[in-house]
Design a protein around this nucleic acid. Structure first.
Length: 681
DNA sequence: GACGTCCTAAACAGTT
DNA sequence: GAACTGTTTAGGACGT
């Protein structure tokens, strides 16, 4: 009775203040986004580019999101990071990434940057440079590492050459065109190598400028040792495939695709600071790399993007390991640089490219939608800031997967909830952003019949950590909780747990929202109580859920279409994949517009998918697992307070009979008792 | 203004 | 008896 709108408003305002003050503008800004990696390509990711960056782990582009644990790989020390703070400020180097850590630069990048220092050069350095012991040690490490690296590359090249030789023998009868292609490929490869050499020279030049290396201008750099005779077409093609797309991206994105190090301004930071975290850049580095799921942090050395929950996440591997070390061993042994891994990388690259393509399309579509909606909305509401969480999700994918326990202090500044300022992310506003604004929240999920799952998925980290009320109705949330469960049924307590697990907001005021949950469960026909031996679980009658509201969007075919195309979600897919591949015709359990015959059939499909198995389950009188039957036990379904004896009726009325009701009839019955029950009684 | 929906609050009954 | 679960009612806010 004592509903106080001002109270509600205050709470919202508070949440938004918390969100914006502590989250969006927080110091938890992913400053790592401004990190540049060199040599070769000065590649910078910014906040809005994380989504792509995370997928570009094999590209020449910066791919901090997919660090490869190379320890004790020699590649580790061969990467050179350039840090800028501010982003346009002078560069400072970090060499190597981390003395005892793991390189953040993917193999493809690290391999491009061999810093071969001859003994003569080393001697020169010793003679002419006053270097600290640390620097000397670093250089020695580099030298050793690079020699090892060279050996590896030579072995690799040898293999490739043998393969190529075999291939050439097989293809000797091939046409001239093929040989022409091979020649062209060789040419291209030579160009690539030339670029690499240039990059390496630039790299060394940068070293020189940093005072770490002193080389006479006319001195021949010993870089050719790497590439001596390396013209196998196979390797070339491989290289091309791995690098081409992203080189193109860079070339198109920048006027100079081979800028290499930006040495226009020599770093004012003396080399002695390179490994110190006390400096600004040091903090930057540490912070940045940590935020990218790095294993550099000595306190959390067991995080790796290819390792989660004790399972190797290498595509198709799924090997289980008891500890991180064994995983690393496995990674280095089983997923070393060989043909198989390369092929898998290729596949992954294609997947990534497809996703990127899809993402680009979706972004474009979203932009169009936003533009369209903005044109219509005459009053821009200034106060609430939409939250861009797309990149956050992407980031979170690379972060340790340990979800924050419920007992954690939930502040918007929690590192697991990185927030991106709106000002930088206009182009990627999630659908929620439009609706998480003030009192509109509760209409979000239903008004346009938009599925809430992608939003929840995308903003999961945020909702889990920020005490911001989710812009969904209780009914939508309950439905989501149930549908997310493997068996699509939850007990009340499990629903509670889902709420508290997924939303920090629901970790307080439990009495209020729990009451609301119960109220909604009981009130809405779409929630069906299924009695078990152990108790009762709640399931969702999807059709009923869809009938809850008449759709007013029929007049906007474009919107309908857009909604329709974003309906596809499969529980087996990962969250990010769901978000980006929503329209890939994956079976869904979500809302559909009732008015459209197409969507009606879609809804029928949903119903069949949800209940079709139940037909088989109906004959299964003895449930081997009574507590958690994957099929909602029809014979135990009780619709609200009137349990029916399934023996006396042909089937559960709620799921079958209501499917034939017209929406116009049904959507008004949400609050009313099912008179069918009375008929049947 | 009517209507529908959502939210909050509360009372009540049954079950654990 | 307390806590939990489930149902129902009531009233206000808000959008259509």
């Amino acid at each position: 009775m004592a509903y106080r709108p001002e109270h509600s408003t205050d709470r919202w305002g508070e949440s938004e203040r918390e969100t914006r003050g502590g989250g969006l503008n927080s110091r938890e800004q992913p400053r790592a986004c401004n990190l540049s990696i060199s040599p070769g390509k000065r590649l910078e990711t910014r906040q809005h580019a994380h989504t792509l960056a995370v997928n570009a782990s094999l590209s020449l582009s910066l791919s901090l999101s997919a660090p490869l644990a190379l320890s004790p790989s020699p590649l580790r020390d061969s990467c050179l990071l350039i840090f800028r703070d501010p982003p346009n400020g002078p560069a400072s180097l970090c060499l190597p990434c981390q003395p005892n850590g793991v390189c953040q630069v993917p193999v493809s990048v690290a391999m491009m940057t061999p810093q071969v220092i001859t003994p003569q050069q080393m001697q020169q350095i010793l003679q002419h440079q006053v270097l600290s012991p640390q620097q000397l040690q670093l250089l020695l490490q580099q030298q050793q590492a690079l020699m090892l690296q060279q050996q590896q590359l030579q072995e690799f090249y040898k293999k490739q050459q043998e393969q190529l030789h075999l291939q050439l023998i097989q293809q000797q009868h091939g046409s001239k065109q093929q040989s022409k292609e091979v020649s062209a490929q060789q040419l291209a490869f030579q160009q690539q190598l030339l670029q690499v050499q240039q990059l390496q020279q630039q790299h060394l030049l940068s070293l020189q400028r940093q005072g770490l290396l002193s080389i006479q201008p006319n001195q021949t750099l010993p870089l050719h040792s790497l590439t001596q005779g390396m013209i196998p077409a196979e390797l070339q093609q491989l290289w091309k495939e791995v690098t081409n797309s992203h080189v193109k991206e860079e070339n198109s994105a920048t006027n100079n695709g081979h800028r290499g190090l930006d040495l226009s301004s020599p770093s004012p930071v003396p080399p002695k600071n390179h490994n110190q975290h006390g400096s600004t850049n040091g903090q930057y580095i540490s912070h940045s790399l940590k935020r990218e799921g790095s294993t550099l942090d000595d306190h959390s050395p067991h995080s790796h993007p290819l390792y989660g929950h004790g399972v190797c996440k290498w595509p198709g591997c799924e090997a289980v390991f008891e500890d991180f070390q064994s995983f690393l061993k496995h990674l280095n042994n089983e997923h070393a640089l060989d043909d198989r891994s390369t092929a898998q990388c290729r596949v992954q690259m294609q997947v990534v490219q497809q996703l990127e393509l899809q993402l680009a399309k979706d972004k474009e579509r979203l932009q169009a939608m936003m533009t369209h909606l903005h044109v219509k909305s005459t009053e821009p509401k200034p106060a609430p800031q939409p939250l861009n969480l797309v990149s956050n999700v992407t980031l979170s994918k690379t972060a340790p997967e340990a979800s924050p326990p419920l007992s954690l202090p939930q502040t918007p500044t929690t590192p697991t909830a990185p927030l991106t300022p709106l000002s930088q992310t206009h182009s990627v506003i999630t659908p929620t952003s439009l609706h998480s604004v003030g009192p509109m929240r509760r209409r979000y999920s239903d008004k346009y019949n938009m599925p809430i799952s992608p939003d929840i998925v995308q903003n999961k980290e945020f909702y889990m950590n920020a005490e911001v009320r989710p812009p969904f109705t209780y009914a939508s949330l309950i439905r989501q909780a149930i549908l997310e469960s493997p068996e699509r049924q939850l007990t009340l307590n499990e629903i509670y747990n889902w709420f508290t697990r997924m939303f920090a907001y629901f970790r307080r005021n439990a009495a209020t929202w729990k009451n609301a949950v119960r109220h909604n469960l009981s009130l809405h026909k779409c929630f069906v109580r299924v009695e078990n031996v152990k108790g009762a679980v709640w399931t969702v009658d999807e059709l009923e859920f869809q009938k809850r509201r008449p759709q007013k969007i029929s007049g906007s075919p474009a919107l309908v279409k857009n909604i329709h195309t974003t309906l596809g979600y499969g529980p087996a897919l990962s969250a990010a994949f769901q978000a980006s591949m929503a329209e890939n015709n994956i079976p869904l359990y979500t809302t559909a517009s009732i008015g459209s015959p197409t969507l009606n059939s879609l809804a029928s499909a949903i119903r069949e998918e949800m209940n079709g198995a139940m037909d088989h389950g109906n004959s299964n009188g003895s449930d081997s697992s009574p507590g958690r039957s994957p099929l909602p036990a029809m014979h135990h379904i009780s619709v609200k307070e009137e349990p029916l004896d399934p023996e006396e009726h042909e089937g559960p009325l709620s799921l079958v009979t209501t499917a034939n009701h017209s929406p116009d009839f049904d959507h008004n019955r949400d609050y009313e008792d099912d008179h069918v029950h009375e008929d049947m009684l």
